[in-house]
């Protein structure tokens, strides 16, 4: 299990940031992703593997309005 923006998400080995974004339907483009406090660079979401128990922050920039 991992937490994404404070709520739990089922984890599996090899899970990537891109998968998390897909599962959560986070289609917004202006995102900042941190895994256990470490920044994940844009363009690496497909290969960035998330460990079990990770605290994942997917910060959506404001945009809108």
């Amino acid at each position: 299990m991992i937490t994404v923006n404070g709520s739990p998400l089922e984890w599996h080995p090899g899970m990537t940031v891109a998968e998390i974004l897909k599962v959560r339907n986070y289609i917004f483009r202006m995102l900042v992703v941190q895994v256990n406090g470490d920044l994940v660079k844009r363009g690496t979401y497909d290969t960035a593997v998330v460990p079990d128990g990770a605290d994942v922050q997917v910060i959506h920039m404001i945009s809108g309005g």
Binding site: Y26, V58, I59, H60, I62, S63, G64, G65
Partner: peptide, 18 residues
């Protein structure tokens, strides 16, 4: 009018301001 504050992502999605 949303030109004062648009906080939905910060609040609802990011859970940044609990």
């Amino acid at each position: 009018q949303h030109d004062e504050a648009w906080l939905i992502f910060m609040d609802m999605v990011n859970n940044q301001i609990p």
